[in-house]
């Protein structure tokens, strides 16, 4: 029952701030989803997940989330990931209000 692998990004919450971060190709964490690594290979995804889980002192709750290639970089597929990349809809808070993408 092997399904074709669909592209993913590796995401988590930052330990100190609690906000959403994504893993880049270089292996560090970004607050801008577009800079995340779009993982298109299943074996590589598993390696990335293990690496991320090992970074227990930097991030919490790492997982692989569906993503697709967009104009700027990876984009969310599911609405939950869209909200995570943006922030709440009732206030202009969270990612949408931050320009300090690192």
């Amino acid at each position: 029952m092997s399904r074709p692998f669909t592209p993913k990004v590796l995401t988590a919450n930052d330990l100190l701030r609690g906000d959403v971060v994504w893993l880049t190709e270089a292996g560090d964490w970004t607050r801008d989803m577009a800079r995340a690594e779009l993982i298109e290979d299943e074996a590589h995804a598993q390696i990335r997940l293990i690496e991320a889980e090992a970074q227990n002192d930097r991030v919490v709750g790492a997982y692989l989330a569906e993503a697709r290639a967009g104009a700027r970089g990876p984009e969310p597929v599911h609405f939950r990931e869209a909200f995570r990349s943006r922030g709440p809809s009732n206030y202009f808070h969270g990612k949408q209000a931050e320009s300090d993408h690192v």
Binding site: G18, D19, V20, N56, G61, F83, G87, K95
Partner: peptide, 25 residues
Amino acid sequence: ISGALTEEEFRPLRLMNGLYLQLHA
């Protein structure tokens, strides 16, 4: 923060003090 506690160890301790990790924070 120093890494002496893992998240698995810390989670029940923070929850006991009302601290959750949510979507954005």
